[in-house]
Design a protein around this nucleic acid. Structure first.
Lengths: 223, 223
DNA sequence: GTAATAATATGAGATATCTCATGTTTTTGA
DNA sequence: TCAAAAACATGAGATATCTCATATTATTAC
């Protein structure tokens, strides 16, 4: 992890100003941090001392279960908060947050700002919206995971992550994300190829039949 | 649905005062409503005109999928909000909310209070906490549903809902809640009986072996 | 009260998904 | 650059879960 200083810090604070999110100045004690791919921004079980606001990159929320299984609960993208649970709740089991790409974020020291933040309607209003969306998304994922087999959820995921008709996510990450075994994921991918929806080329897959994939994904009803 | 008036209304507003949740008076346009068991408080897909605050009873959040499956996403208990998603988000697919027992709640007309509510730090702070817990609970349920078989989740559910050693939830409701088929639920319940964890007596089950059920439930790691 | 509806129950066969075993290829770190 | 670690790949058998079919009770509505 690198903490930006001087001009570099100034640059990011100007380029990605978050002044509009607060009704008081937060510049004084803010840090601009860069985490490398795979670095842990928050360790599972360890309360963070900062409230983070992501301005670039992508991170992953993980939780480890007692049976050793690891769930990738969700991704965090630019313009989203990290550590807001700990800011709000005195008791909370902290999940692990890992940078999935190089990730740049602002870090607000909680001990300095907590009181003011919890009195700031502007901040709270935006955070409330963010959390309401987060809760809805989790509810949707939860009910979909119970109501539909991998086939549908994978089709949706492929369409969401494919870039110019090419799907090339890492299988291991997708397993964690969709909550299925490696073996089963490969199985369903093979089926998609056999049915002509995709074509495997080395390590990547080319989408050949968008219509069929869409048909599978649409029944999830992600609105 | 019945709207309380006069003395009855006064009684509930005094007994369950929510003045401490707002920094401005909300009494003027508030309604006190009673919904009967199985009545719909909010119809799926229909935006509500009120923000509800439950003061008694229990309600269920449902979503209907395109394949006809219905998921019971979660329960709502006393001192929780209903309709907060619609208050916050202009576009939102409204889920169905059904009273699970007789449910009494306050109803605040959104068109009258929306502006003030979204400026009220006191209200927003509490709502933010509520939503953060909601998001966490959904995340936990999501990851548990992927990481553990019904056996574990059912053991947890039985321990949470049993009253004095007696489990007597309706099977159909439990299926929706745990997201499994009726057939499979009965199958696992039968296993629990065969293993001596419970004993079936007519339509109810008596818990015989708390230790084993706890062992199954504990691996979920619900902290 | 009686017919309709919802809930309980159970069997049998299908399918979705998992575990384990084993081998190859790619990436990473000293 | 080489060894270790991670990711990819595939087979085979087990298990969790689903669908469908069919009865038997409760509950509800008229």
């Amino acid at each position: 992890m690198e903490i930006y200083k001087g001009k570099k810090k100034q640059y990011f604070m100007e380029q990605h100003s978050i002044a509009h999110l607060f009704s008081f100045p937060v510049e004084e004690f803010i840090e601009v941090r860069e985490y490398k791919r795979d670095e842990w921004i928050i360790q599972e079980g360890m309360r963070p001392d900062f409230l983070f606001y992501v301005i670039g990159g992508k991170a992953k929320i993980y939780i480890t279960h007692q049976n050793g299984k690891v769930s990738l609960i969700n991704f965090i993208n630019a313009n989203e908060y990290i550590g807001e649970m700990e800011l709000l709740n005195d008791v909370y089991y902290t999940k692990g947050i890992q940078a999935s790409t190089k990730t740049i974020c602002f870090a607000l020291p909680i001990h300095r700002y907590r009181g003011q933040l919890l009195e700031d309607a502007k901040f709270l209003r935006e955070l409330t919206k963010f959390l309401s969306v987060k809760a809805s998304v989790m509810a949707a994922k939860y009910s979909q995971s119970l109501a539909f087999p991998l086939e549908n959820r994978l089709a949706d995921f492929i369409l969401q992550t494919a870039d110019e008709g090419v799907y090339k996510e890492k299988h291991v990450a997708v397993c964690d994300y969709l909550g299925v075994s490696y073996r089963h994921l490969l199985h369903v991918l093979t089926q998609f190829c056999e049915k002509g929806y995709m074509q495997k080329d080395g390590r990547v897959y080319h989408i050949k039949d968008y219509a069929s994939l869409h048909a599978l994904a649409d029944v999830l009803g992600n609105r």
